[in-house]
Amino acid sequence: MSRIAKRFEQLKAQGRTALVPFVTAGDPEPTTTVPLMHAMVTAGADIIELGVPFSDPMADGPVIQRATERALAKGVRLADVLDMVREFRTQDAETPVVLMGYLNPIEIMGYDAFSERARDAGVDGALIVDVPPEEGHDLVATMKAQGLDLVYLLAPTSTQDRIARIGEVASGFVYYVSVKGVTGAANLDAGDVAEHVEAIRRTIALPVGVGFGIKDPETAAKVSKVADAVIVGSAIVSRIEALAERPAEIPATIGDFLSSLRAAIDAA
């Protein structure tokens, strides 16, 4: 059983919803990331999504675009991100790590090399934003052969046919994008999200995470009632940005924020 599946099974047994923070690897400094990952786990993160910097992040809003630019300016590339995961794994063998990014850096590394190196580093899965199932055949096969999960997005615009198609290839969990828009977009409508998540559950047996537009403990609590995982990205990354000149303070500050989300989710 994959680390991701195991984690969701534990949570289900405990009756808890997963808290999944996203941070861009290497933002604002390459040395920030691993201590930050540990701090997030201590504060209640169940799975960590790690953004792989790419020069043209077309699905991301301004907050994560700027994080990407900060990381790229420090020379952080896919191979460096894998090294960070490897370092994280020396102290944490339990918490699943999912890479989130765009295809081109993986394409250049090669699907085989990427899958092997990711597995060796201790990565559990990847969400490649610009690879729909229609284009993912070879990548899915290669990653699955290495035991890596391929997480797919679902959107408010996904038809029933598309949900079924994604259900056939996705593993680990699926990620419902709660609003039409880019990361960090407008606030989500909890009622609307509940309806879509129900529609997904009718077709897909995997856990359903919900993200985009979750900015505070109140929204996190609402979403946790319908989702198996609450995914928070831009709200964390904007707090990192505010501390870009004082990176030593980042793990504690983000830890406090995650604790507040964790408490709200557990109380919901």
């Binding site: 077309m58 610009d130 729909p132 229609e134 284009e135 997005l153 959107a155 615009t157 038809t159 828009g181």
Partner: peptide
């Protein structure tokens, strides 16, 4: 039918854009 010119072309976009 899905926009490929040999190995090139295709639809490498986020899920939100696939149906549109």
């Amino acid at each position: 039918a899905v926009g490929h010119f040999g190995p090139y072309g295709g639809m490498f976009v986020p899920e939100t854009l696939m149906h549109p």
